[in-house]
Design a protein around this nucleic acid. Structure first.
Lengths: 147, 147
DNA sequence: TCTTGACCTAAAGTCAGCTTTAGGTGTTAC
DNA sequence: GTAACACCTAAAGCTGACTTTAGGTCAAGA
């Protein structure tokens, strides 16, 4: 069993945030002894899931719904599975968008390296949109696809 | 040249957002004819870069700084390159975190598929933390690494 | 002429997710 | 016995990124 301060250090999450999560109902079965919160293995796994679902773009109130399902037992396995499948698809989509973002950043890095080396952008602008060197044309194309 | 409404439809960005960006100084050289904004190729590329930098986690005020550098000419190539390199590193780090998030989601999907199939979690909990089937143990380990 | 639609401004409002503040309890260390 | 910690609560405050509101201009079509 851990105190709020120990969990805070363990996960690198501020104490105020843990109290906020608790107030929002994210630790439905959290025990207390004489007013003090006692975090067990269940709450640690809940916190891992909270961080995961937050990173996947889910809002606190929807995470609360999930935690509620968890405390309702086997009746809710179906809903929980559906939720994780939805978030999995969301993260896969986000990964694709981030890959295109990275393509743009790769292109811009290359562009300013060239601009610095050549002392200007003129020669570079003449290569747009489709006479770029092979190694960077792909990144440019993917970053500019559809607009 | 495009009006604000055309750009809005083209990029799928609300008109109010485009005006907000303009007010925040994200289109430093934006022209107007009798009060009406005229978006040219430069502003379209600026908007692509805005979406890219936003997705990479940058704040509006820092994007404004970048746009300012762009309007200052070749003196600022170095700063611009540095900025893109920094954001590239940030996105690469974010991609790694998202991969771990995805590992957690993969594990949870598998877990609830099993729970549904078996009618309960008991048999499953006995496999934690290191007796899981090969195909899912890796995802579990990566998702739970370091806590 | 009048009304519809696309544009404009300044200022106030909204929302999520915390964080801070102000005040209080209970236990250990000197 | 008093000071330093680690915990507690309720409520107010903050931040960033928009969005909405309220009111106005201008041009084209019926």
């Amino acid at each position: 069993m851990y105190t709020i301060g120990q969990v805070s250090r363990l996960f690198g999450v501020p104490i105020s945030t843990l109290r906020y999560y608790d107030k929002e109902g994210l630790f439905p079965g959290l025990e207390r002894s004489s007013g003090i919160r006692r975090f067990g293995e269940q709450e640690l796994e809940a916190l891992r899931v909270i961080e995961c679902l937050k990173r996947s773009g889910m809002e606190i109130k929807d995470i609360k719904q999930f935690m509620l399902w968890c405390s309702l037992g086997r009746e809710t396995y179906g809903q929980r599975l559906e939720l994780f499948r939805r978030q999995k698809a969301a993260v896969e989509a986000e990964l694709k968008k981030l890959e295109r973002t990275l393509d743009m950043l790769r292109f811009k890095c290359w562009y300013y390296e060239q601009a610095l080396a050549q002392g200007g952008e003129e020669g570079l602008k003449a290569l747009l949109p489709d006479a770029l060197p092979e190694e960077i044309q792909g990144a440019y194309d993917r970053a500019h696809a559809g607009l």
